[in-house]
Design a binder for these strands. Structure first.
Lengths: 188, 188
DNA sequence: AAATAAGCGGGGACTGTCTCCGGTTGATTC
DNA sequence: GAATCAACCGGAGACAGTCCCCGCTTATTT
């Protein structure tokens, strides 16, 4: 199961370089940035890129998984310092803002929530769903969130709020407002 | 301003054929269907396609504007036969279902609402926004919808609901549920 | 230092986009 | 209904992006 042999030093170096170049390129040119160009920027041949990341999707995921995990990790920090209802609200806000700020990240989080990606993305999805579950259940126990709603539904709706807000101006200036509309609908 | 000269018969025929082929191809292969292939299916050269529709976006819009207008037109029919609050709810439901069913239509309605497209799309946007305004204001007058919300915000939120529902299964099975959550948040 | 295999990288096939321009055809005029 | 003329057609081809293949390089092992 585990890698019997660690990655060769040059392979690892190229892998890192590619990840870095990819993050930069995706941020700059959107998620359709030229892959050959990313390879060039990283100083490797395109063959090397395609060996490490067979598809554009794989590269995109690899470049962003840690950001998604970071968002998931925020949930417990917030749970520790705020009452359940507020922690959930605040986390959803950070989730929306975080996904809207980085180009391409929103779609990725979307498919993580929808179980629609690779193994790496599925792991992220599990983290996010776990985080959401803890916050949602706490809020339900507290009585500030209606009982007939599931954590994954909250995630989907947050994704919807992000989309709605994005429609307004491309930035996330309406997130707070639309999110509060949602939480009103989610009260018991 | 007006076309001084009507389109030549063969030009008009090719235009229609292209529209038909495009609708079929987009429905079948998604919005990235090959344009040259669409031209081939329509029995014209690719030059002809690009003359009539300079960009993929233009073709996409031309192929779908009538559907969008049809949705907008439904608003008045519903307003005539239902009380304002119900008419709005029902219309939003039809809007969500309609945009999710046809591949690529959702994004188009989105940019129509966001004023992000061509002249043709802007016209559609005006229709939709007009329809929404009539329904929203009637519901507000009736007192079933909070007063501090604007028609365009309702449209954005409906778009968000569609996205959220789409995340569940790709179909629109959750639309009714998520929409009702939204309308609860929108009560006075 | 030699042996070995993991890894490199760029040439090239392929697909899709979009433009250009010689040839064709529908409209108009007499 | 023939002639004229512009509008229109269409496909060849330049270009850009994707992705694979395979001879060569180099890290690792002994």
């Amino acid at each position: 199961m585990a890698q019997v042999r660690p990655m060769r030093a040059d392979a690892r170096r190229n892998y890192e370089r590619l990840l870095k170049a990819a993050a930069a390129a995706f941020a700059e040119h959107g998620e359709n940035a030229s892959l050959d160009d990313i390879a060039k920027r990283a100083g490797v041949g395109s063959g090397t890129l395609y060996r490490h990341f067979p598809t554009r999707q794989a590269l995109l995921e690899a470049a962003y998984v840690d950001r998604i995990e970071a968002i998931a990790a925020r949930a417990d920090a917030l749970a520790a310092e705020l009452p359940p209802g507020e922690a959930l609200t605040q986390w959803l806000h950070e989730l929306c803002v975080g996904t809207i700020q980085v180009r391409g990240l929103k779609a990725l989080v979307g498919s993580a929530v929808a179980d629609g990606g690779s193994a790496a993305l599925t792991v992220c999805g599990t983290s996010i769903k776990g985080a959401a579950t803890r916050l949602v259940e706490a809020a339900q126990r507290e009585g500030t969130l209606r009982a007939d709603i599931e954590p994954i539904e909250v995630l989907r709706l947050a994704h919807g709020v992000t989309t709605a807000s994005e429609l307004a101006d491309g930035e996330g200036t309406r997130i707070r407002r639309y999110l509060s509309l949602l939480t009103e609908g989610l009260r018991p």
